[in-house]
Design a protein around this nucleic acid. Sequence first.
DNA 1: CTGAAAGCGCTAACAA
DNA 2: TTGTTAGCGCTTTCAG
Lengths: 360, 360
Amino acid sequence: MTSTSAGPLNRRATIKDVAALAGVSIATVSRVLSGKVPTTAPAHAKVTRAAKELRYVANAHARALLSQGPRTVAILVPDVTVPFFAHVAHGVEQQAAEEGRICLIGSTNGDLEKELVIGAMMREQGVEAVILVGGVVKSPTYRERMTDFARALDASGSHLVLCGRPPLGKDAPVSVVEYDNTAGSHAITSHLLAAGHRRILHLTGEPNHHTPVNRLEGYRRALHDHGYPYDEDLVLWRGFTRSAGAALMKQALHDQLDFTAVFAGNDLMAAGALDVLREAGIRVPEDVSLVGFDDIPLATDLYPKLTTVHLPHEELGRMAVRMVVDRDEHTPVNSHVVLGTHIVRRDSVRRRGGRPAAEV
Amino acid sequence: MTSTSAGPLNRRATIKDVAALAGVSIATVSRVLSGKVPTTAPAHAKVTRAAKELRYVANAHARALLSQGPRTVAILVPDVTVPFFAHVAHGVEQQAAEEGRICLIGSTNGDLEKELVIGAMMREQGVEAVILVGGVVKSPTYRERMTDFARALDASGSHLVLCGRPPLGKDAPVSVVEYDNTAGSHAITSHLLAAGHRRILHLTGEPNHHTPVNRLEGYRRALHDHGYPYDEDLVLWRGFTRSAGAALMKQALHDQLDFTAVFAGNDLMAAGALDVLREAGIRVPEDVSLVGFDDIPLATDLYPKLTTVHLPHEELGRMAVRMVVDRDEHTPVNSHVVLGTHIVRRDSVRRRGGRPAAEV
DNA sequence: CTGAAAGCGCTAACAA
DNA sequence: TTGTTAGCGCTTTCAG
């Protein structure tokens, strides 16, 4: 029934099997295979042949027990199909691979309970670090549990890194890499203001999440800095999804809100909003200007191409693993790095009155 | 220096630490914590307290050594940022989570060497299965190495599943879940034909990959079945990316190819092509019709919304893990399931002469 | 109900 | 250079 000539070994071959077949001790097998210790040619040959015949590969768990297995970094995202997360995850994987780490990935679907459960699982795996991306909620309870998780990880010689999330507090042993939501938001709002827009509709995420709150803050400050009033009725909350963008836009139209520009909380929402605008016969940017936030590839696929805030997706991920890998050398216990953002101007904004914003 | 009252244990707490602190044997700790064995109330209390204080979690590797750690499934994709792969990966994760498995993910960036290396790593981890998604090349050497990998996995009590890839051959111990590329391609081509198009430009991937070749086959057959000639000059090869779609479209325009419709090998290519078409002042669908393949969310963000072939992304991933998980019960050694596809008509196709294809 | 001890697969002393 | 042996952290007999 078996196809190999080695015998009906219906389980994974162990070092013992190889030793037996090669007629040497397990220590010799280990040495030959590791290649780091001098061995005789005949022994080498026998072991190599036996190993290949048995398709032997060392058991990573046994190795891990001796604390010399490959290091693993874990990343936890709400959902890999969301472009922002996919790009951050990609950055993590790339950097992890370059650092010789393997990468464990999990998704939570936004379920906070699941986040903790999977996090615990990862800790059991003895991961070098767990990188948490996105979706943090503003709740004291949550913050407390997170802090506790960070401490547990820390006590295990592991580490928590928050990626694209705000810090937990000075007493929590975490590293954080984020980008400046408020500044980016301030910049894009100012861009709209400079183009002559005064009534800017802001479609955004859920009020109990950090990201939308910080982006709103930038929007408000820009308005204030330029001396224009903030109108609460112009900000609509729902969620960072395409469908939320569409629903909110529909609502704004239905309520006949007065605005000349739309600042969508992210590019996905902008896509949803654009669709509704088009169906309503409202032209972008001729009738209303539209901007997003993220600069995912989608932004250039929309028509018109979307003016938005560029976020360093991949770099966020890469930095997260670097902070962990370099930690032993420099030991910056609680580092906090903030990456920059910048506006990328495309075709969805027009100066009120005629001239395109690009020429402002 | 330490924040807990348990003492300066600067490593992960082990069962011994808990036992010592609780004043019981390690066996008792194990039993209490597993909960499956009757224990006395006082013992239970002491152990629970000690464990919590030490933030103890069992070492997953030690457990795995006793072959009772959590099962793990591994998925290997070329690139998580490619929507198709992200959606399949999401399906895998969802199903894996539902089956109580954890999920290891790796990306190869299309590097075949890396695919084998990471695959080996996963085997060392003792994963229950490795799921390979996308990007297979048509090469005997590659096929052979893959077969060897499948055998190695099989010999270890693990399993290889090919997802969205063609089978390896009857002698290779693999399961495969795919969808019918040829049928989908045949259907969408027929759709174009029925709308009166005769000269259909086909922009596609790389000639040494299976997917584009199978899609081309459907295109050819549709042409043949409807009695129209196949013109090789109308098929342009490059890659399944946005930029390849754009480059190819540019080339077709430059070469002044004669066509009334474009069949892009996937939605990403369609996005690239659409952009070039628009810049050239060619209207879709008024001047030329355009279709894609995949039905990723992007398809509805394009303007006009893209008519395309819907692929069961998530289901592909879910089925892949089901095939492995259910394997023990039903033991269908080399199963092969083919999932269906269907056209979704949107706004990018118009009947030659005027009537929209939707009314055909 | 609990403790002592064996052993999962492996590497690293320690001898020979 | 090679074999023997002691664990790594855990679960599970097997005695008590």
